[in-house]
Design a binder for these strands. Sequence first.
DNA 1: TTTTGAGTTGTTCGA
DNA 2: GTCGAACAACTCAAA
Length: 467
Amino acid sequence: MNKKITIHWFIQDLRLHDNPSFYSASEEGEVIPIFILDNVNTQKYQLGSASKWWLHYSLLSLQKSLGGKLNYFIGDPKEILIKLIDKYKVTAVNWNRCYEPWQIKRDENLRKILLEKGIEVNTYNSSLLWEPWDILKSDGTPYKVFTPFYKNGCLVGGISPRKSLSKPKNLQLIFQQSNDNSVSILNLLPKNNWGKKLEKYWKIGEKNALDTLKSFIESGIKNYKEGRNFPGENFVSTLSPHIHFGEISPNLIWEKISSLHSDENTNHFLSELGWREFSYYLLYHFPHMPEKNLQKKFDKFSWQNNKSYFEAWKKGKTGYPIVDAGMRQLWETGYIHNRVRMIVGSFLVKNLLLHWHYGAEWFWDCLVDADLASNSFGWQWIAGCGADAAPYFRIFNPIIQGEKFDVDGKYTKRYLLELENLPNKYLFCPWKAPKAILDKAGVILGVNYPYPIVDLKESRNLALKAY
DNA sequence: TTTTGAGTTGTTCGA
DNA sequence: GTCGAACAACTCAAA
């Protein structure tokens, strides 16, 4: 009998453990492990700068776990796969499915072509706990509200999430020797020094993803439900970029958290994984979610689209410290704490009256965890035009939010050094501080920290009226 | 088919 | 200072 040669195509599953496609390929014989940077089918969803940076290091880490035998390609997967199949007499092509609409389309087409060539095609689910097509209401249509989706659809009605797998035991890997077989051909690192800065904040790759989960279980989860609201503290998992690139699977996380003593903290964290599922679920059933308002009546909304407001927002120079701290955290670290994402999002949409697309695009470029499903869902939610969105009158007040969730000012002062010496009483509204206090703190409004670019009350009423 | 209750994360105002 | 109502009306899910 001829031995079996399988291509395992790594896409957003950059790990060896709990990798159903890689596991089964390895069980059956020799494997050609490949990564393809697809710059042909992506259309407008080319990776953002922060994502590319992360991907570069994640690939290096994966390459190391594979003993240096990861094969790199750039171009159209169809052509690359066909060349490889012919060259190595490949029997089967395996991959773990991705759920972005453009990937679904590409992969359906690819599967057809490979099957016609007589090649075995095996695809697996390695990134979702529940398949979007399995969870439906009794009338056969998709859910649009989170709670019934999660409770009735997933927890009660759904199939239990797949159990995680170990690393495959015997690896027989085929590596294509050539000069340009290195991650550098993908050209992922930014030309400027922006990437350098990010290095301080992240440890990338499969092992670090597992370590991050471990330390979250040891500390953050114990006060997750309350603590997750405080951006200055470490109660959130920061697993999102690891999950996005598949350095760790939601299944393993689900399994580990479920095995802990069940309480309000573990349940709340599991429901956050449920929210991630819900974003993918909606993206699957409503593939235009990244572009179009899920509620059509918002199409008529009169956005202001003032470019100078957008510039100020991006740079963290709106004059509202909690907003600015968030935007500078994004620039500095490639990440924003979830509570602050809502604050800066609400501010962009409901105080600056900018279209949520602006915010989504900036996040897409800057976030190391940029994810089409979560990002478009999140922005639609905060804008109020999503399936199960915030009511129009839910407009975050950046002063109150700061006072409430950054009580000691630790978070805000970490990113706004110019306000370091301002007493907490005025930290979230420096323009209200008496001159003597500003002087003493070395804050000169309009010089080293901006005046507020919009009036809260006024812009809030403007938004309410527009809604 | 009709009815009923609910819908992640908020703020403001006035008693 | 605290508390409840109002901020609108609609859509969704399930009985």
